[in-house]
Structures are given as structure tokens and as C-alpha cells.
Amino acid sequence: MTALGFLYPGHSAEDDYPRIEQLLGSDIRVDLVHTDLGEDAYRVDALRGTGSPERLAAGLEELRLAGVEAVVWACAGGSFVLGWDGAHEQVRGIALAAGMPASSTSFAFVHALQEIEVRRVAVAATYPDDIARLFADFLRAGGAEVTGVHSSGTVTAAEAGAWGERELFALARAADSPEAQALLLPDTALHTVAHIPALEKDLGKPVLTANQVTVWECLRLTDRRVNAPELGALFTREPVVQV
């Protein structure tokens, strides 16, 4: 049994995680602990507060007691707003406090792009324009080429969490471009897991979503590779063979 740990801010799309657990198989357990969201606002100051060390540390003891093998901060905005170096420092702090490997959703996107060998990406963001641009800057720092950023202007996680299939597909189609090799949906407050195969079929390319890559990243930290086509192209790759 591989036990995966996640720190999830507030309550928006956390039901994506038991859905992913079901699709992964019986020998993988997903343990999710909710952290204090603080002010629900897609602003830099509020997102920095959401990812503060005090808020993250509060949930780590519960994950340790659950016996998880790695932990991922399941929040994109609460990490990439810190910038590349700041997000690294945040993850180091989580790993030190937890005593186990750690990462965040922001780095999960960077590592997932490396896994599927893609550089040119389009960003379909629920966030306001300024926050969406910070995510694009983070991706560029990680080696990606961002072909375009489309923002819906959503201002809270609660608003994003209330979206359904219609809003999700409209955002994805508006953001996609022929130059992009993959489409990224960076908000863990957005329900996406049930729609990934249909999105990939509709767009004709890999689609990476926040909750999807977050779980994949935790599997990566535990050296697990799982074939789960219902979770999209990211979960159908053959393991990379190190020479």
C-alpha cells in the first residue's frame, strides 16, 4: 500500500481526490487534510497567506499520523505567487516539517511537462489576469514556453468550485491554440478529473489539470508509476528508463 498525503486549502474541489484514488487502484491510498484557506480571494497577498508556513504546518501532524510517504501542497496559486525561489523555499519548509519528501501543485505542472516531453503550452486560468500571468512566469522559469494565457477573471476559489462542465470546456477551448502542445488548467479549486479524457479528445492534445498533476507528483515522489488512462495522457506514459 502506497499512502499519499495532500494539504488542500479550504473546500472547493476536494472530491476530485477520492475520484482519483478510485481510478488509481486498490494499493494506493489518498489522504487529504484541509488547511485554513484564510481569505478566499485570488489576490497575491491573500494567496501568500493561504500558503503561509503556519497554515501548512497545522495539517502535517495529521498526515504523519496517517502514515503517508510523501506530501504535496495541493494549491497552485498559494505557491507560484511566491516566485520560483520562494516556492522552492516553501516546499523545503514543508519537507523539513513533515520529515518526508514534499512538493506543490506548481512544481507538479513543471515536472508533468517534463514527463510528457512538452514545452509549448497554453494556460486556461480561472484566475484574474495578474495572477494568471504569475503562473505563466513560473512555468517559464521551469523551462516551458507559454504560447498564450486566457483568464476567466474568477476572483474566489468558491466561485471556481461551483463551475461545471459547460464553463470548464468553454475556458479550455478559449485558451487553446494550434501552437500549444498541451493545455494547462492550474486551479485546484476547479473540478476537472471527471472531464480529462473528454477534454483531451475535444482539443486533440494532452490536458494537465491541477488536481490531476498534484496526485501524479505525489506518486512521483514515492517512485510509483500508475497506468490510468481515465486520468489522461499523463497517466498513460511508460516509465522513464534511466541509463
Rank of each mutant, 00 (worst) to 15 (best):
A141I: 00
C218F: 01
G78I: 09
D176T: 14
G83W: 06
S103L: 05
S26L: 04
P18L: 01
I94R: 07
R120G: 02
F169R: 12
L234A: 07
A194G: 05
E14A: 15
N211F: 05
A66I: 05
T188K: 01
G25A: 00
G25P: 03
T2M: 12
I196E: 07
D45Q: 14
L219N: 10
A112E: 02
A58R: 15
D40C: 13
S79E: 04
Q242R: 11
R55D: 04
T222S: 13
V123C: 04
R92D: 10
L32P: 10
R55C: 08
A46D: 14
A141F: 04
L234Y: 09
L56T: 02
G5T: 04
L4W: 05
L231I: 08
V30F: 09
P178C: 03
L65A: 15
R48M: 14
V44T: 15
A125G: 10
H111V: 00
F6V: 06
R220E: 10
K205C: 09
Y42F: 15
V146P: 10
C75F: 03
R43E: 14
G25H: 00
H88M: 10
L60N: 03
F6K: 06
P53T: 06
A157S: 14
D129L: 13
E21H: 02
W163I: 07
D36V: 11
I94W: 10
Y127K: 10
L231C: 08
A233Y: 12
V193I: 14
A98G: 15
K201F: 00
D31M: 08
H191I: 00
V71R: 07
T147P: 01
T147C: 15
T2S: 14
R43T: 15
P197R: 02
S106F: 08
T156L: 12
A57E: 13
G49Q: 11
T35N: 12
A136H: 11
E62M: 09
T236D: 11
T126P: 01
T188C: 15
V240M: 03
G232K: 05
F235M: 00
K201I: 02
A136M: 11
A124W: 06
L32K: 02
Q114M: 01
R220Q: 11
S79L: 03
A122T: 09
A125D: 06
R220Y: 10
F109I: 00
Q90F: 11
R173G: 07
D45N: 12
D45Y: 05
A76K: 01
Q212M: 09
E165S: 12
S52Q: 12
G142Y: 02
L134N: 03
V155A: 15
G143S: 04
E39K: 14
L63F: 01
L184M: 08
A136V: 06
G5D: 05
G164A: 11
E14K: 05
L185D: 08
R64E: 04
E179V: 06
V146N: 08
A158F: 10
L190T: 14
P53F: 13
T209F: 04
V149W: 09
L7H: 09
D176E: 11
A95H: 00
D223V: 02
N211L: 00
M100A: 03
T2P: 04
L56V: 09
E115D: 05
S106G: 14
F6L: 15
D202W: 00
D129Y: 08
F138L: 04
A58K: 14
C75L: 02
L208V: 09
L24I: 08
A66E: 06
E230D: 14
L63S: 03
E200Y: 12
R64K: 15
